[in-house]
Design a protein around this nucleic acid. Structure first.
Lengths: 198, 198
DNA sequence: CGAGGCCTTGACCGCGGTCAATGCCCGTGG
DNA sequence: CCACGGGCATTGACCGCGGTCAAGGCCTCG
């Protein structure tokens, strides 16, 4: 666990710049700071449990997380999220039971936000409405990326795509997790890697 | 080609109910009607071409479409859209080159909307901002559904999921297209089907 | 030093892709 | 009205990719 300054304003600036491309009023800023808090959590913390309703969204200031679900008793990794990115499940956003679990893979610092409060506020506040639109637009693009990646059929294609786009994860995540993320077995990934070095 | 009444108001009602869950002002309605027109187009019409910028989104009143892209010279079906659903590419929404082509599989009636105009309007209009958020939220859920479906690894699992969730397409789309959509060869789909009847 | 986590390597085999032949349906033209 | 051709689906033969099971190596930590 790292030391951290728990005042919101220390961290919220990149977050504001990312999702509010306009000047926000003092009232809007109040809504934001009232419904977002800064948390430090250790590696291994489970933020969201599959099947439960969890009305919070997170924004990673520092750290790494993975989303996964159980398929026939085996954990399947859905995706990883790095610092400076939002985490959560789409179902949380809509107030429904989460399809995935989310776990921290490194000691992390995060913004925790009350989604219900923001959705309610978005019914009347232009800025909040705009904020939520920005978040979900970004998420949509993220998912589409992933959708295209999944259409790569051979394991080699998928691993190559991974190397070209997310190779930074190699240094931070076990090959077992990455294999699951790529939809292949640990053994196949291992063979691929030795084959590609030759 | 069917006969159709080309006045917007005849068709726009379900569309409004779906994306504006609040009373809209006369000005907002003007923005909508100014930037949406009704079109009838025959089967085979290509709405969007892969690689091109196309600043329009569509809403199917009646008909069926498919989105696809070329992979190693072969068409891969990304998804199908039915009547009473929006069509387009996410890149069109963001003003970028489309990754997919969209083609009508049946004679169709559609609302054609100018996305640029709506995005510009959304910078100042609450209702339009809210409208775009609704559309993209819906699309996000749609994509997540598809993402989960793609994680079904065996061809049998994928076809079963298809039967349970989209079997209506069986009557309207060729098995060749469906096989491509499921990520399997036409032959494998054929074998699956004969196997499942026994 | 031993135990457990993680990765690698080998042996085996079944799923599903490719290629090719055949059947069926339907629209078009002789 | 029938014959031919094209589009689509089915079926068989073949085989390679990648999954499973099992063994062995390496590193870290108690």
């Amino acid at each position: 666990m790292k030391e951290f300054d728990d005042s919101i304003m220390t961290y919220i600036d990149p977050f504001l710049k990312r999702y509010f491309n306009r000047d926000i009023t003092h009232e809007d800023l109040m809504v934001i700071t009232d419904n977002i808090s800064v948390k430090a959590m250790p590696k291994g913390t489970v933020l969201i449990k599959e099947g439960e309703i969890h009305n919070y969204g997170y924004f990673l200031i520092e750290g790494l997380s993975r989303s996964f679900y159980l398929k026939n008793g085996v954990e399947v990794n859905f995706w990883f999220d790095r610092e400076n990115n939002p985490i959560g499940s789409l179902e949380s956003y809509f107030g429904r039971e989460s399809k995935v679990s989310v776990e921290l893979l490194e000691d992390s610092i995060l913004l925790k936000s009350d989604i219900n409060a923001f959705r309610k506020e978005a019914e009347v506040s232009f800025a909040t409405n705009y904020f939520l639109r920005s978040v979900i637009e970004e998420y949509a693009q993220f998912m589409e990326q992933r959708l295209y990646a999944l259409q790569y059929k051979t394991s080699k294609e998928r691993y190559k795509y991974f190397l070209e786009n997310e190779s930074d994860l190699l240094r931070r995540v076990s090959l077992t997790h990455i294999a699951s993320y790529l939809g292949i077995s640990r053994e196949t990934l291992s063979r691929l890697r030795s084959e590609m070095i030759l």
